[in-house]
Simulated assay, not measured.
Amino acid sequence: MTVRSRPLSPHLQIYRWTITMATSILHRATGIALYVGTVLLVVWLGAAAAGQDALNVVNSIYGSWFGQLVMFGYTWALFQHMMSGLRHFIWDFAVMMEPGRREALGWATLIASTVLTLLVWTVFVWAA
């Protein structure tokens, strides 16, 4: 009786990482982060509904350096998820599917989300 070895499934160590792979994983991760950020928004709205004292407590937490870091990350996750969604919308029309253009679109989502985040924080948070 001969024992045949089973074929091995390809794993992440075999594949060469591409920007489209990274942005696909990032899209899923930012989706999860948006759930957490939405909970933070609900907490803030609940505090606002509860009264000024509760709102002051939440504002002091969100206004701390750690709270600001979390809010900055939430803003970036929101823009990254949105840009990645637009990338998939473009692909729904079978546009920019060629390898070079596909990678360029992946980089564009990362750059656009970073620029939009910095723009929003510069205009609405840091300048205030």
Results as ranks from 00 to 15, higher is better:
Ile32Asp: 02
Ala108Ile: 07
Leu105Ala: 15
Leu119Tyr: 09
Leu45His: 07
Trp17Thr: 09
Val70Thr: 01
His27Ile: 01
Gly100Asp: 07
Val57Gln: 07
Met97Pro: 00
Gly100Ile: 06
Tyr35Ala: 13
Glu103His: 07
Ser24Tyr: 10
Val57Asn: 05
Ile61Cys: 10
Ser64Ala: 11
Val95Gln: 07
Ser60Pro: 05
Val70Cys: 05
Arg6Gln: 09
Leu78Glu: 02
Ala112Phe: 02
Gly85Gln: 00
Met1Glu: 09
Val42Lys: 01
Phe72Asn: 12
Glu103Thr: 00
Ala94Phe: 00
Thr2Gln: 08
Leu41Met: 14
Gly106Tyr: 09
Phe124Cys: 06
Ser113Glu: 03
Thr114His: 08
Thr18Asp: 04
Gln13Ser: 14
Leu110Gln: 11
Phe72Ser: 09
Ala48Met: 11
Gly63Asn: 05
Ala48Asp: 02
Ile19Asn: 02
Trp44Asp: 02
Ser24Val: 06
Ser84Gly: 14
Thr38Ser: 13
Met71Glu: 02
Trp44Phe: 04
Leu55Glu: 00
Val43Thr: 09
Leu78Asn: 03
Thr38Ile: 06
Asn56Ser: 02
Thr109Leu: 01
Ser5Lys: 06
Ser60Arg: 10
Asn56Tyr: 02
Ser24Phe: 13
Leu78Thr: 03
Met82Asn: 05
Phe66Thr: 12
His88Leu: 15
Leu119Asp: 04
Thr75Gln: 05
Thr122Ala: 07
Pro99Gly: 05
Gly85Ala: 11
Thr38Asp: 01
Trp121Glu: 02
Ala112Cys: 12
Ala108Trp: 03
Ser60Glu: 08
Met21Arg: 08
Ala50Asn: 02
Thr75Leu: 14
Met82Arg: 01
Leu34Ile: 14
Thr2Trp: 08
Leu119Val: 12
Thr18Ala: 09
Ala104Pro: 01
Val95Phe: 03
Gly37Thr: 02
Ala47Ser: 07
Phe89Val: 13
Gly51Glu: 13
Val39His: 10
Phe72Met: 10
Leu78Val: 03
Trp76Glu: 06
Arg28Trp: 10
Phe79Met: 05
Leu12Tyr: 11
Met1Gly: 15
Ile61Gln: 10
Leu119Asn: 09
Phe79Ala: 04
Gly37Asn: 01
Val42Leu: 13
Leu105Pro: 04
Tyr62Asn: 00
Ala112Ser: 13
Leu8Phe: 08
Ala49Pro: 00
Leu116Gly: 03
Ala33Ile: 09
Thr38Met: 13
Gly51Tyr: 12
Thr30Met: 10
Leu118Gly: 15
Ala49Gly: 04
His11Lys: 11
Gln80Glu: 14
Pro10Asn: 06
Phe93Glu: 09
Leu69Val: 04
Asn59Tyr: 01
His11Ala: 05
Asn59Ile: 01
Gly73Phe: 12
Arg6Asn: 03
Thr18Lys: 15
Trp76Pro: 07
Ile19Thr: 08
Leu86Asp: 12
Gln80Ala: 15
Gly67Arg: 00
Gly85Arg: 01
Leu86Ala: 10
Asn56Ala: 14
Arg28Met: 04
His81Val: 01
Thr2Tyr: 12
Arg102Phe: 11
Leu69Ser: 11
Leu86Ile: 14
Phe89Arg: 14
Thr38Glu: 00
Gln80Trp: 11
Trp126Phe: 10
Met1Arg: 09
Val58Pro: 00
Tyr35His: 13
Asp53Ile: 14
Met1Lys: 15
Ile19His: 07
Leu116Gln: 02
